[in-house]
Computed example of a mutant assay.
Amino acid sequence: MTYRGLILEFGGVLTIRMRLNGEAFERSEGLAPGTYTRALNAHPDGVAIYKALEVGEATQEQWNRVIGGILGIDPTDLMRRALANLHLEPRMVDAARRARAAGIKVAMLSNSFGLTPFNPYEALGMWDGQWDAIVLSEQLGVRKPDPGIYLHTLEQLQLAGEECVFVDDHAVNRRRPLPWGSVRSTTRTLPRRWRGWMHSWITRWQRNDVMSRPALTRQRLECGESYGSPLISPDARSTRLRGAHCRKSHEA
């Protein structure tokens, strides 16, 4: 079977590494190195409010107040300030556009940063017109790695799971059995070898040179697990994931 769908994470895949953005934010706010990451990943209130934000149980303004309180800084429009140094990864954005132009269905799948008062997807020009589907966790009430969000993405694309390639920067989002067979990938921020493979794949697609699973399974993609510091091996091998199109047993 030929791959017909490309599903991309926003932060850390379509953008630069989240860790780089966090470090720049710490410098701009005069925070000690690592302070922001610890607030998000280690402080119990920070962990709880981020999880609630991602599933739509907290507003971005509530996140601003909680994280601002932990950091001891002005919470006003904090998410905008926290993401001020998050820039697009141009070659990945170009790869997504080339894929769609070649007839591949392309989705952006993201655990949400919230949409108001600051919409980071819109701010970076990723909100309208260039996706076959945009899937945000807050709009569904579930976040990665819950299988429901992957099933919903497949339904939006109207593709079987085995037809899709999924690119994410966190191992935890790929660890449990997912409802598709796919290449599993991550970024640091997508080294040249992986970016080159993406461009090669799309170019061959445009030339009607069918790229089937056996060709793809020569790739090996692995990553680390800490927030904002994904790792990738320089060589590649894909792992076929268990599952089929919209397997409802995952929702039981």
Rank of each mutant, 00 (worst) to 15 (best):
M1S: 09
M1Y: 02
G5E: 00
L6T: 02
L6W: 07
L8M: 01
G11M: 13
G12K: 05
L14H: 01
M18D: 11
M18Y: 11
N21I: 03
G22K: 04
G22T: 10
E23N: 04
E23V: 10
F25G: 03
R27C: 10
R27W: 09
R27H: 08
S28R: 05
G30R: 05
L31Y: 01
L31S: 00
L31C: 03
G34E: 04
A39F: 04
A42K: 14
G46D: 06
A48T: 10
I49L: 02
Y50C: 04
Y50P: 00
L53N: 01
L53V: 02
V55R: 10
G56H: 03
G56R: 06
G56I: 03
T59F: 07
T59C: 00
N64L: 05
G69A: 04
I70D: 00
L71S: 01
I73L: 10
D74S: 07
P75N: 06
T76N: 12
L78P: 00
R80Y: 01
L86A: 00
H87E: 11
L88I: 09
L88V: 11
P90N: 00
M92F: 09
K105L: 09
V106E: 02
N111D: 09
F113R: 08
T116A: 15
T116K: 13
P117C: 02
P117W: 07
A123L: 04
A123H: 08
G125K: 04
M126V: 10
M126L: 15
W127T: 09
D128T: 14
S137N: 01
E138D: 14
Q139W: 12
P145F: 01
D146K: 00
Y150M: 06
H152R: 06
E155M: 07
E155Y: 07
Q156D: 00
Q158Y: 11
A160Q: 10
C164P: 05
V165W: 11
V167R: 01
D169M: 04
A171E: 13
V172K: 11
R176T: 14
R176K: 13
P177S: 11
P179F: 06
W180Y: 13
W180H: 08
V183N: 12
T187R: 13
P191L: 12
R192E: 14
W194I: 15
W194L: 15
S200I: 01
W201Y: 11
I202V: 11
I202G: 02
R204A: 12
D209F: 05
D209H: 07
D209C: 08
V210Q: 10
V210E: 14
A215D: 14
T217A: 12
T217G: 12
R220V: 15
R220Q: 13
Y227E: 14
G228I: 09
L231P: 07
L231K: 14
S233Y: 10
P234R: 02
P234C: 00
D235C: 03
R237V: 05
S238H: 08
S238E: 09
T239R: 05
R242C: 09
A244C: 06
H245K: 01
R247D: 15
R247P: 13
E251D: 15
A252I: 15
